[in-house]
Structures are given as C-alpha cells and as structure tokens.
C-alpha cells in the first residue's frame, strides 16, 4: 500500500449529470486514466465516458450458480446412494428427478450470493474510510444531488496547479483538493 499522505486528488463538483459526463469524456480524451465520477444514482454514460465498460459480476454469478447446483446435486446423490440409502416405497435410491428441486434452489442461492458479494468485493467494499469523505462538499452532495469528477494524484499527468486549471475550464461549481 502506498504511503497515505499528501493529496489524493482534485475533486470538481458539477450541477447536472450532463456537465459531469461532458467533463469526464473530455478528461478521458485528454489522456487522464486515474479518474472517477461520483453520482447519486446510476449514470451509465459517465462510466462509459471514463472507459469503464465491462464488469466481471456476471462471470462470478455464473460460476457460483454452477458450483452451487453441482454441489447440491452431488450431496443429494451421495446421501441417498452411499451415506444413507433407505427404501422409500421401492423407489430407486438415485431418484434424480426428485433431486432437481433442491439443486435448482441452490443454483439460484449461490448464483445470487456470488453476484451480490462478488459485486461488493469487486467494488472494494466494505471500505469505511475513503479520502473523498474528507472533502466537505462531497459528504453533502455525492449521495444526494451533486455530481463529482475526481482526478487522482496517482495519474502520471497529475500536477496540482495544472490539474486545477484544467478542471476550471470545464465549468465546475467548485474544485477542491482532497487530502489523504
């Protein structure tokens, strides 16, 4: 983990989603790569503007579902055929049609759990602390009605004065420095 001191980045606040998307698109075109947008509701256009298109949640979901279904079917077969074979009205011990129902439920269960917790893990959550929470206007608006673009200090192009001047050209409400 890099040393947590100095500046995390510059945070520009915008009034409307349209302003944010235009600013994000412009920054990405100008070669910024360590940047992120913060919005109070899902804004796909902003994600596209900063070059974030594909996510791995569906893959995790698929794997979880397949594993869950296979695990349950295997468990049922093992229990009914090997571990505890009992004769119920002369039916075969390997009654696979009856095993489908729990296997189906477990496919859904593990697909769902993988999607939900996989999504949170891929997002790096939980992370109760984040430098952005130090910015006063971020706490006030990011989850309510304001739209933020953050150019991060880790970007090779980053220089506080130049980045600030650059952001000012895009008509933000304000630009603030964010400390670690």
């Amino acid at each position: 983990m890099p040393a947590r001191e100095g500046i995390y980045g510059l945070l520009a606040e915008f009034e409307t989603p349209g302003d944010l998307v235009r600013a994000a698109r412009q920054s990405y075109q100008d070669g910024w790569r360590r940047l992120d947008c913060y919005t109070p509701f899902p804004l796909e256009e902003a994600a596209e503007a900063i070059g974030f298109h594909r996510d791995k949640v569906p893959l995790l979901c698929l794997l979880g579902g397949l594993l869950g279904g296979a695990a349950m079917f295997g468990l049922e077969t093992w229990i009914s055929v090997i571990a505890f074979p009992i004769n119920v009205a002369g039916r075969p011990t390997y009654s696979w049609p009856a095993f489908i129902v729990p296997a189906y439920e477990w496919t859904i269960l593990w697909a769902g759990l993988s999607a939900a917790f996989g999504m949170l893990a891929l997002c790096g959550l939980p992370s109760l602390y984040h430098p952005l929470f130090n910015a006063p206007n971020f706490r006030d608006g990011a989850t309510t009605d304001k739209f933020f673009l953050c150019l991060e200090a880790l970007d090779p192009k980053f220089d506080v004065a130049e980045a600030r001047a650059y952001l000012e050209t895009m008509g933000p409400v304000s630009v603030v420095e964010v400390e670690y």
Partner: peptide, 17 residues
C-alpha cells in the same frame, strides 16, 4: 452502508448485480 460513495464504476457493477 459499507462505505458506499457512489463511484460510477461501483454503480455499473451494482446495476449488473
């Protein structure tokens, strides 16, 4: 809230989930 901060990268994955 697990430290939710509304990053659009998070939102995209959240919407997929």
């Amino acid at each position: 809230s697990w430290g939710w901060r509304g990053s659009v990268r998070h939102w995209v994955q959240y919407e997929t989930a």
